[in-house]
Design a protein around this nucleic acid. Structure first.
Lengths: 262, 262
DNA sequence: CGGGACATTGATTAAGATCAATTTAAGTGG
DNA sequence: CCACTTAAATTGATCTTAATCAATGTCCCG
């Protein structure tokens, strides 16, 4: 046994207790103070790291609200006013853009620790949907407070710049993966990334539950769901993976990394 | 005749005059004051538009330097220190990222008016190469001056945020194009975008010279150069385009837009 | 225990990659 | 200035990958 939380712990209940939604159903979500932020020790915050840490600490001086989202429900949608950033405290989500022709693209699968909502900063309106893949909790960071802080503190402002730029770098890299790699390489690359992020969140990088469907993965990687399924089967018979529906175990991480050029 | 500059004018000389490089060869580039910026009327600047315009105007108070780049030469490379932003005053370029596995991806083809260099803001080091596709000129905007200005002026800081976020939006959209569309649709989409940007730069949106090779286009759109060539031929026989090497005429813009979901 | 969403698997087709041979046009040097 | 060289582009033949169409299987959840 190692010290990682075992996969079953990853499974947050899809049916939260009544208390979680006491203040109202979807549309008027429950908002409760985030204990960790009140205590000034929310370990999740990317804003806390990397030097310019004043952003989140200062905001933590006030009561940071928490919001819960049930599986399949949106945290925000394209077209919504951009009023908050969200720190994904627990759970996971998918980000989805919709072209006016109707085609959809899942651009990311954020998990615990991720900052959500920056897509709204250019125009003041969100440009994508953020949909929970499981019962999730976010800390709410009002953008007005954040911008006010940035106005006072150049280091905080630079940090915000860097966070936005980080998203650009993420998409630029994903672009390369989609433009240059074959389906099998994309899948391998995706799984390595997922594994790394599981590790960064304190879970086992080798064994975890997929929160998204094959169709979500396929869409995200620019292929069809049957192709994802077939490649999973192929990697399974090559003893690189053990997959069984949502359960995934990486048996040969080195082979997977090599395959994904990672 | 219409009022657009005719295509031949687009062809900037690949052999600049000796004067352009009087101060030195590549590596010690010539830098001369930009007359338009000194006069406070550089019409190119995106930073001048969209409300929060103090960024560029304030910087224009000092002498903005200009730099020339010959075809095929880099304005900056991945790994270079991030010291300046560049306003592409004339000419065009390609942005290229290189994965550590060696694969390369052309992520954009900026043209006159574009702001280059923001890829360096996250880490302080450039993450892509910016290579001139023809003899080009840029205005040099030192990033320290820019950040100092943003520290004083919250509106300028917000504007910088938005410019970075704009890149994110660009890449996210390109991601969708690569993930969801077939080769022909990608090409059509690409040409419509190119046409729109030619128009925005004051040229004819219907008739212009391509500054990039088939291979560049193919790489950018995640396909092979033969495929680009074949699709050009197909669109030509469909009376949608007239292509002959670098010359391109859009005969049926509506059909092209429809084909590119644009 | 039964319905429905999700996933797997197989057969076939289509899109695009790959391999290969020319063609064209633009530089280069005599 | 013209022949020569070379990079870029076109075109054809074939092969590979992944999409599509279709059927079946499995598990989760009420």
């Amino acid at each position: 046994m190692n010290s990682y939380r075992i996969p079953v712990v990853l499974e947050t209940p899809d049916r939260p207790s009544a208390r979680d939604f006491a203040a109202g159903p979807y549309g008027a979500p429950a908002r409760t103070p985030c204990a960790a932020s009140v205590a000034g020790k929310c370990a999740m915050s990317r804003l806390c790291r990397d030097g310019a840490d004043s952003l989140y600490r200062t905001l933590s001086g006030q009561t940071v609200l928490r919001r819960t989202i049930r599986r399949g429900e949106p945290l925000y949608r394209a077209g919504d006013m951009f009023t908050n950033l969200y720190q994904l405290h627990s759970g996971s989500a998918k980000l989805r853009i919709t072209h006016y022709s109707g085609i959809e693209q899942i651009t990311a699968f954020p998990m615990a620790g991720a900052l959500l909502g920056l897509d709204g900063i250019e125009t003041g309106v969100h440009t994508c949907d953020a949909v929970a893949l499981e019962h999730s909790m976010v800390c709410v960071l009002p953008i007005d407070d954040l911008l006010a802080l940035c106005g006072q503190d150049p280091a905080a402002a630079l940090q915000l710049n860097k966070m936005i730029a980080h998203e650009t770098a993420y998409y630029r890299n994903l672009l390369l993966v989609l433009a240059c790699m074959k389906s099998e390489e994309r899948i391998a690359n995706f799984l390595v990334d997922l594994s790394d992020r599981m590790a960064a969140s304190g879970y086992s990088p080798k064994e975890f539950m997929l929160k998204m469907t094959r169709e979500d993965i396929a869409n995200h990687l620019g292929m069809k769901l049957e192709t994802v399924s077939r490649i999973f089967t192929r990697l399974k018979s090559g003893r690189i993976l053990d997959v069984r529906r949502r359960y995934l175990k990486i048996c040969n991480p080195d082979a997977l990394k090599k395959m994904g050029n990672a």
